[in-house]
Design a protein around this nucleic acid. Structure first.
Lengths: 243, 243
DNA sequence: AATCATTTCAAATGGTCATTTGAAATGATT
DNA sequence: AATCATTTCAAATGACCATTTGAAATGATT
C-alpha cells in the first residue's frame, strides 16, 4: 500500500473491483511488517530487550534492512511493540474497570476493592497476553527511560492509572483519597516485579526450598490479597486536611 | 601492593620500618582502583548501568586500560560495585533485625512487624547509602540476570531474606508461615520499584498533579504502611495443612 | 648503580551493532 | 509493452565498544 496508490484512490472515480483490491491490500498490510513485529515481540519476551536486529530479522525470515525500511529505526520498532502491548492490555483493564464501576453504580453500592484490583492484575496473568513481556518493558523504562517510553507511559498508562486511583477511593472511602496516588504506584511495583521473575530460576522457589514458585496458579490470588491489604491499610496517621 | 612484595613480606625477618611502609601501602591500596570504583558508582547511579569504560575512566581521570588492569574486565567491575553495595546494606539490615529480635526475646513478646519492615526499608532511605543505585541494580538483575548477579543475589540477599521471612512469622503468627515466601517478594517489589522512580520526572508527581512526590520525606512511612498491610493481610483462604 | 616487578599510557585490535547504499526484483498504471 | 513507484536484498559503512599490546615510566630490592 504505497502513498502514491492512496493518492490515486482518492482522486479516481469509484470502482467496485478496484475497491475490493484496495481493501484487501490494506488488510494484508504488510505481511513482512507484522512478521517483524511478531518475531521481535517473541525475542524480547524470551531474551530481553537487547535483542539485535540481526536476530529479529533471522527469526522473521526477512532481510536485515527491512526493519529500517518498515520502522525507520530499531528504537521505533521497540516502541511500536511497547505501544501495541500497552494499548491492548490497558484498554482491557479500563473496560473491565468501567463495567464493574457501572455495575456497582446500578446496584447503589461502592465497587469492591477486590474486583478493582483483579481488573488491574488479570491481564498480566491471562495466557497469551504477554504480561511478562510488558512487565519487563515497564521495568526497563524505569531503569533507562527514553523520551519515547515516557510518551508511551503518559499516553497509555497515566489515564488508566488516574481512573484506577479514583476507583480505589470509591471502594475505600475510609482511606484519605490522596494516599492512593502513592499506593497505586506501590501496587504497580509489587505486580510488575513479581511478574517479571524469570521462569525456571525463580527466587521464590529458592527461598522456599522448592515449595513455592512464581508460576504456581495461585500466585495471582496471593498477589491480590497482598495488594488489597496494602491499599486498604490503616496507617494510623492523621490525614492532612489542609488541601 | 604487588604479589611479589607480599611473598617477600612473609619470607623476611620482621622489621619495624618495613612493616610501617607495608601497612601504609595496604591502606592506600590502590588509589586508582578506588577512583575507578567511585566514578563507576557515581555514573551507574546517574546514567544507568550501561555506562562505558571510557566515561568511567574519564571521570576518574585515569587511563582507559586501568579498568582491565585492576578489575580484569568491566563485568567484574560492575559486580564488585554491586557486591560491595549489597554487602554494606544487607549487613546493616541483618544486624538491625537481629537486635530487634533479641530485644523482643528478652521482653518475652513477639517482635513488632513495623520494626521488622523498618529494618528492611531504612537502608534504602538513609542519605549516602546509595539506596537508589542498589534498587536499580536489583531491577537490572531482574530484567537481565547474569551468572554473576545470580551469585551475588544468592550470596548477599537470600540469607537475609530467609531471616526476614522467619521474623515475619514471629510477628504475625496468625498468617500461615509459608505465605511469607511470596509476601517477602511482594514487599521487595514494592520497595525497589518505588525507590527507583527517577528523581525529577517522577510519576507520582504527574499523577497527582504535583501534589505528591517520591522524594517527599514521608514516602518511606507510606511505603511502610502499605507493606505492613500487605504482609499481614487476611486473604480468607483456608491454609494448606498437608505439609 | 643495576636489576627486577609493577604500574601507566597511547595506540591498536577485533568484534558487534544499527543503519545506509544502490542495484535488482516486483508489481501496478497507462 | 513501457514507465513508474515500491519493495527486497547483499554488501558496505561507520560508530562504539571492551579489551590487548608493548613500550615507557616508576618504584622497590640487592
Amino acid at each position: 500500500m504505497s502513498a502514491a496508490q492512496i493518492d490515486r484512490w482518492f482522486q479516481e472515480p469509484p470502482n467496485a473491483v478496484k475497491a475490493a483490491k484496495m481493501i484487501k491490500a490494506i488488510a494484508e498490510d504488510s505481511e513482512i511488517r507484522s512478521r517483524i513485529l511478531n518475531a521481535a515481540e517473541e525475542l524480547f519476551a524470551k531474551n530481553g530487550l537487547e535483542t539485535s536486529i540481526r536476530e529479529i530479522t533471522e527469526l522473521a525470515n526477512v532481510n536485515i534492512a527491512a526493519v529500517n525500511y518498515y520502522f525507520s529505526s530499531k528504537t521505533a520498532l521497540s516502541e511500536a511493540i511497547f505501544e501495541q502491548l500497552s494499548q491492548r492490555i490497558n484498554i482491557k483493564r479500563l473496560s473491565d474497570l468501567e463495567s464493574l464501576l457501572s455495575l456497582a453504580r446500578n446496584e447503589c453500592r461502592p465497587p469492591s476493592l477486590r474486583d478493582i484490583v483483579l481488573a488491574f492484575i488479570r491481564p498480566y496473568f491471562e495466557p497469551g497476553s504477554d504480561g511478562k513481556l510488558l512487565a519487563r518493558l515497564i521495568l526497563q523504562s524505569r531503569i533507562a527511560p527514553t523520551s519515547l517510553t515516557k510518551v508511551i507511559v503518559e499516553r497509555h498508562f497515566d489515564p488508566m492509572a488516574k481512573r484506577f486511583i479514583e476507583a480505589f477511593s470509591l471502594a475505600c472511602p475510609s482511606v484519605e483519597a490522596s494516599k492512593f496516588y502513592r499506593r497505586y504506584e506501590f501496587m504497580v511495583g509489587t505486580v510488575v516485579f513479581t511478574i517479571s521473575d524469570p521462569a525456571g530460576g525463580s527466587r521464590m522457589r529458592r527461598l522456599s526450598n522448592g515449595r513455592i514458585d512464581v508460576d504456581d496458579p495461585d500466585v495471582a490470588s496471593s498477589l491480590v490479597s497482598f495488594v488489597i491489604g496494602g491499599l486498604s491499610a490503616d496507617d494510623g496517621l492523621v490525614p492532612d486536611q489542609s488541601g
